[in-house]
Nucleic acid binder design. Sequence first.
DNA 1: CGACATTCGCAACTGTGTAGCATCTATGGG
DNA 2: CCCATAGATGCTACACAGTTGCGAATGTCG
Lengths: 151, 151
Amino acid sequence: MMLPHATPVETAAEAETAVLLIRRTGARATPARLRVLRLLRAAPAALTHHQIEQALGDLAIDRVTLYRVLDWLVESGLARRTTDAQRTFRYSLAAGGEHAAHTHFRCEDCGRVFCLDAAPPVPPSLPEGFCLSRIELDLCGRCAECTGERR
Amino acid sequence: MMLPHATPVETAAEAETAVLLIRRTGARATPARLRVLRLLRAAPAALTHHQIEQALGDLAIDRVTLYRVLDWLVESGLARRTTDAQRTFRYSLAAGGEHAAHTHFRCEDCGRVFCLDAAPPVPPSLPEGFCLSRIELDLCGRCAECTGERR
DNA sequence: CGACATTCGCAACTGTGTAGCATCTATGGG
DNA sequence: CCCATAGATGCTACACAGTTGCGAATGTCG
Ligand SMILES: [Mn+2]
Ligand SMILES: [Mn+2]
Ligand SMILES: [Zn+2]
Ligand SMILES: [Zn+2]
């Protein structure tokens, strides 16, 4: 045994976790799933299919396969899918709900999502028989950077 | 002069208003714009391009022309465009802001939009340099009718 | 009436997401 | 370690909302 510890411990552990997370659902830990899961874990905000393709670089995953991996991640509860203002899906880790305790702001210009200090919205009372499945405060505008650049 | 008043006064007045609304923007009051504007005025909720096409019936407006009419309505400030959960655009009258004083609930099943009693959300404080352009509380789920029907 | 910019209608195109199906592979049992 | 096989992958083709280009038609102003 000489240099088996050349790779950062962190990375190895993370990879292991990813494999376990996937296996736990009863599905196969395939390279495509592992790469996408790790990518989402490292992402600072929800990503589009296109952005993920870009991030994967040269060793691209097939377009359709990527869609299916993302679908699977959502169905298995590992990821969340939201619709952005440009009518495209954005994917993010469902995670431990760390981002459930505050609201978010999306820059219409650069597309980035920012965490705010504000608490999430409280559900209003609904008419009899109505059933709420999703509540989200949609805050759009321009971030400081983008406001500075253009105009 | 014999039967010039055969048509309901209301309709004539409305048509007149529509023409004026359009002319006021400096654009032409074409049949396509008038029909769509009147249709939106009569609509109980935001409509999709497809729904508007259907509603226009036999004397259809060209698909692309309809898109352009809708784009123009939005640009001229006469209509609003929102993105629904199925990632399609929905168009509604910008109107006198009657619906600005309360929140809305969208049924994921039938697509209808309901007016709630709850007040609209208050904008949270944003980081320095950030600029808010839109704030919307997104409430999705199932309406009473749809909850009853399917399970 | 014209003149003429605006608007329309058609055809072709883009971008995002799906479906079918043959091929490949991760994984558990021998 | 190898094999069988359910389950994933990668094509190709397709669906659908929305956009672009351009020649023809028309609303508006004089
Ligand atoms: Mn957050
Ligand atoms: Mn309302
Ligand atoms: Zn920005
Ligand atoms: Zn409903």
